[in-house]
């Protein structure tokens, strides 16, 4: 039996909406399972790569050091890396903090916000927590990205068409109606 190519997915600084959109391919997910095996992904909860992957799907940009680490791991293990959705492409909503100093953001979130209850005035600083980056970085500013699928989230059809084209070695020709930035 021929081994199927593997697909891995990750959600970095995203909202899992792009993963929801992937699941939105509905019954085509059965066809997808015929085409590929899922490796490291929140969908099957595999935590570490088990081998080389044909395609890595990245949702979300890099907001903390863990995001950067995961993204670099994906680049190492995947032949083709796809930025899925506007967060991966340009930072999106998390990147709205990018022209506000990080210290101000943390103080607003943990000390000064109108609904904050924090009598000890502690900004979370446990060693286990990944450090926030000074700003949110779009994925292509951290590693080489091979393809981008825009949208917030991208339509299930654009994800489906891109995956099928790449897995079957056909050129990626996306119809006009599927390219949307919102």
């Amino acid at each position: 039996m021929m081994t199927k190519p593997k697909v891995a997915t990750a959600s970095l600084a995203g909202c899992f909406g792009c993963h929801m959109s992937l699941l939105d391919i509905d019954e085509r997910i059965l066809k997808l399972i015929e085409l590929v095996d899922f490796d490291k992904s929140p969908i099957d909860d595999i935590k570490e790569f088990t081998g080389r992957c044909a395609i890595g799907l990245i949702e979300g940009g890099c907001a903390n050091e863990d995001n950067v680490h995961v993204l670099q791991e994906f680049r190492k293990h995947c032949d083709i890396l796809i930025a899925v959705g506007d967060c991966a492409i340009m930072g999106d909503i998390p990147a709205m903090r990018n022209n506000i100093p990080l210290k101000e953001c943390l103080e607003e979130a943990y000390l000064n916000g109108p609904t904050v209850y924090n009598p000890e005035k502690i900004i979370p600083n446990d060693k286990e927590l990944p450090l926030c980056l000074n700003r949110v970085y779009p994925c292509h500013e951290v590693v080489k990205i091979d393809y981008s699928l825009p949208g917030c989230p991208p339509n299930a059809d654009i994800i489906w068409q891109a995956l099928v084209a790449l897995l079957t070695g056909k050129p990626l020709e996306l119809p006009y109606e599927l390219i949307k930035y919102d």
């Binding site: 930025a83 340009m90 930072g91 699928l149 390219i179």
Partner: peptide, 21 residues
Amino acid sequence: LQAVAYRLGILAPKYPYFFPK
């Protein structure tokens, strides 16, 4: 701006973002 980008088939800008204030 968005429409011209769609028409020209831009999936994502290739440059680093400025995030100006």
